[in-house]
């Protein structure tokens, strides 16, 4: 599809999407599938899209690959994300929701307070899949305190060192794991990279 638009002030909303939506979304999906299938591995999602700030390339590529009119997207700070929301809406058709209980995807801010995450849908015992996926930006995916990961997708254990996790993240994820099979799935993002932390992953200080 090609769209020609002359409105200069809004032009940036239409640019920066997938150059080849069919192949690019397939490529991003496989990387995200590996990221969640093998928690702790770093997925390279760079170079697919050029989103407006403050959306990272990784967060934007994930949204363009997975979001559509069936998946309300919740932004933690919509007031800071006018361009990002417009860009996402244009490229995916996904509705932005202000209702945290309806979020299929949540675009969080760095150091997002974990106390507020309890409101996201974690599914029901009949349908644990009716839950939100959190996209959490961090300062860096390396250089922080080591965390040991175990669980499905990990042969023995994996150590990650994300920098700039919110206070209480580890304790929240322990509670999240305890609610299994209900729960939230988390994608840590920084720049063009992402790490998947599905609800099955046990996280502890290494």
């Amino acid at each position: 599809m090609s769209v020609s638009i002359n409105t200069r002030s809004e032009g940036h909303v239409f640019e920066g999407g997938f150059a080849n939506p069919v192949m690019d979304s397939q490529g991003v999906f496989r990387r995200v599938m590996n990221a969640l299938g093998e928690p702790g591995t770093v997925a390279d999602l760079s170079g697919f899209v050029t989103p407006p700030a403050p959306l990272s390339q990784a967060a934007a590529a994930i949204l363009l690959t997975l979001a559509d009119y069936d998946t309300p997207v919740w932004f933690e700070k919509p007031e800071n994300n006018d361009d990002a929301i417009g860009w996402m809406s244009f490229h995916t058709g996904a509705p932005r929701t202000a209702d945290v209980f309806r979020a299929a995807f949540a675009v969080l801010e760095k150091m997002s307070p974990v106390e507020a995450w309890a409101k996201f849908p974690i599914g029901t015992s009949d349908y644990p899949d009716r839950s939100a996926t959190l996209i959490l930006p961090v300062e860096s995916l390396a250089g922080g305190e080591p965390l040991r990961l175990t669980g499905p997708g990990i042969e023995t254990e994996k150590v990650i060192t994300p920098l700039g996790l919110p206070q209480g993240f580890e304790a929240f994820m322990t509670e999240n794991r305890a609610a299994y099979p209900l729960g939230l799935d988390v994608l840590l993002v920084c720049g063009g990279e992402a790490i998947g932390l599905p609800r099955t992953t046990r996280i502890e200080e290494a």
Binding site: P21, F29, M33, L66, D68, D70, P128, D129, G183, R199
Partner: peptide
């Protein structure tokens, strides 16, 4: 593409909840 996206989301949920 809409169908693929829907199936892809289901695959990711399946991976997050093994056996469900």
């Amino acid at each position: 593409e809409q169908t693929k996206r829907m199936i892809r989301r289901s695959i990711l949920k399946g991976i997050a909840i093994p056996g469900y």
